[in-house]
Computed example of a mutant assay.
Amino acid sequence: MRITGDHTALAIEGRLDVRTAADARVLLHQAVDGGLGDLVLDLARLEFWDATGLGVIMGTHRRAGRIGRRLVLRSVPAQLQRLLVATKLHRILAVDGGIAEAHVS
């Protein structure tokens, strides 16, 4: 897993899972704490996330909300969109461009 960017926009590459969650949490929380306005998280190169990784995203979402920021997911791969729909988290998380209707059933 690799995270690049700054306090306004980050990109995650690789896997966000139980092995990478702790490092990702630290980096994402630093980005939230160090900026203002929306924090855009580009997931175009994210290959996989498990429940732990999804928990990191939700924790970052909550942390951002507590300080008046918003976490915005961008370029969410189709497989991950399906997981957001299955868990109904697409109703809670801000997804740039929304979730493709084909994935909502």
Results as ranks from 00 to 15, higher is better:
residue 21 A to M: 06
residue 5 G to F: 02
residue 74 R to W: 11
residue 31 A to C: 10
residue 96 D to S: 01
residue 84 L to K: 15
residue 86 A to W: 13
residue 51 A to Q: 13
residue 4 T to H: 07
residue 3 I to R: 00
residue 90 H to P: 01
residue 9 A to M: 02
residue 68 G to R: 11
residue 76 V to K: 09
residue 82 R to H: 11
residue 36 L to K: 15
residue 97 G to S: 07
residue 3 I to A: 00
residue 43 L to V: 06
residue 90 H to L: 03
residue 81 Q to G: 12
residue 85 V to G: 15
residue 17 D to W: 05
residue 82 R to G: 10
residue 26 V to G: 15
residue 63 R to A: 15
residue 41 L to V: 08
residue 98 G to R: 03
residue 48 F to W: 01
residue 23 D to K: 04
residue 60 T to H: 13
residue 21 A to R: 05
residue 94 A to C: 01
residue 87 T to Q: 14
residue 99 I to L: 09
residue 1 M to F: 00
residue 91 R to M: 07
residue 96 D to L: 00
residue 32 V to M: 11
residue 93 L to S: 04
residue 94 A to W: 02
residue 60 T to D: 14
residue 41 L to I: 07
residue 90 H to E: 07
residue 21 A to G: 02
residue 50 D to A: 03
residue 75 S to H: 10
residue 23 D to W: 02
residue 92 I to Y: 10
residue 51 A to G: 14
residue 65 G to I: 06
residue 55 G to Y: 04
residue 58 M to D: 14
residue 65 G to C: 12
residue 42 D to E: 03
residue 96 D to F: 00
residue 105 S to F: 03
residue 57 I to Y: 09
residue 34 G to Q: 12
residue 38 D to H: 02
residue 2 R to L: 05
residue 19 R to W: 13
residue 79 Q to H: 11
residue 76 V to Y: 08
residue 57 I to Q: 12
residue 30 Q to Y: 05
residue 5 G to W: 01
residue 64 A to M: 07
residue 104 V to N: 13
residue 105 S to G: 07
residue 10 L to V: 05
residue 77 P to Y: 14
residue 85 V to T: 13
residue 14 G to T: 01
residue 56 V to A: 06
residue 25 R to H: 07
residue 79 Q to P: 06
residue 79 Q to G: 11
residue 10 L to S: 09
residue 71 L to P: 12
residue 9 A to T: 04
residue 57 I to V: 13
residue 57 I to M: 14
residue 62 R to Q: 13
residue 101 E to Y: 06
residue 21 A to L: 03
residue 47 E to T: 01
residue 7 H to I: 00
residue 43 L to W: 10
residue 40 V to W: 15
residue 40 V to D: 13
residue 4 T to D: 12
residue 89 L to V: 07
residue 52 T to V: 09
residue 44 A to D: 10
residue 35 G to P: 08
residue 56 V to C: 04
residue 54 L to Q: 11
residue 29 H to P: 06
residue 45 R to A: 13
residue 89 L to K: 13
residue 34 G to M: 06
residue 50 D to I: 00
residue 78 A to D: 15
residue 57 I to R: 10
residue 11 A to N: 03
residue 13 E to A: 08
residue 81 Q to V: 03
residue 14 G to K: 04
residue 96 D to P: 00
residue 36 L to F: 15
residue 66 R to V: 14
residue 23 D to R: 05
residue 11 A to K: 05
residue 100 A to W: 07
residue 34 G to F: 04
residue 22 A to K: 08
residue 103 H to S: 02
residue 63 R to S: 14
residue 83 L to G: 09
residue 86 A to F: 14
residue 42 D to A: 03
residue 21 A to T: 00
residue 85 V to P: 14
residue 17 D to A: 01
residue 47 E to Q: 08
residue 69 R to M: 13
residue 81 Q to W: 10
residue 85 V to Y: 15
residue 16 L to A: 00
residue 96 D to E: 07
residue 15 R to E: 09
residue 23 D to T: 03
residue 7 H to G: 00
residue 30 Q to F: 02
residue 33 D to W: 11
residue 28 L to H: 09
residue 73 L to Y: 12
residue 63 R to V: 08
residue 29 H to C: 08
residue 102 A to V: 04
residue 59 G to P: 01
residue 37 G to I: 05
residue 23 D to P: 01
residue 59 G to I: 00
residue 83 L to D: 12
